[in-house]
Design a protein around this nucleic acid. Sequence first.
DNA 1: CTCTTGATCTTCT
DNA 2: GAAGATCAAGAGC
Length: 201
Amino acid sequence: MAQGSKSAADHPPRLGKSIKRRFFDRSVHEVAPDLIGTTLLVDGVGGIIVEVEAYHHTDPAAHSFRGPTARNRVMFGPPGFSYVYRSYGIHWCVNFVCEEAGSASAVLIRALQPTHGIPAMRRRRGLHDERALCSGPGKLCEALGITIKHSELPLDQPPIALHARTGQPEIVKGIRIGLTKAVELPWRYGLKDSKFLSKRF
DNA sequence: CTCTTGATCTTCT
DNA sequence: GAAGATCAAGAGC
């Protein structure tokens, strides 16, 4: 994409068709890479998903590993809903629930390439640099205004919207970020050579 | 560039 | 009472 401060804001890319909840009713390991290149908007503000991580209840690093709790119960429900949690007492992070109810799997959205509502994102983040607006799970929630109020919402209804990618992106894979358990599992997916990742692959 | 540390609080043990 | 799917700033190289 073109560089500089005005290109994306002035000419946001055309959006693909809306993604329905059914998209998430399959293996989290299929959904996660398929989300790369799709566009996430919250009240019209957002961008292209460039980095995600997959979690499953059989995975010691997953919030659902030890069974349902007040916090993670939405992970045990049907696919196609949001799961928002508080991270380190400060940040919010958003996941998309996958697979059939009870499977307790979800995809953590880790980074976006900002395309829509960039002025609003800059205002919320107190930053100008597009590269830093959404290059991490806590950052993108701040930029999109996502809080606990956005948890347990259907992903194909306002204020949330997901749009299909138009081409086939080149996807890279690696180990997940910031974990202390199951550190070695290669369940992080990203858009190859994107400048908007939270960290290089 | 990399490494370290403080901030801040909910959740679960 | 400790841990944690993070971030930003500061120090050192």
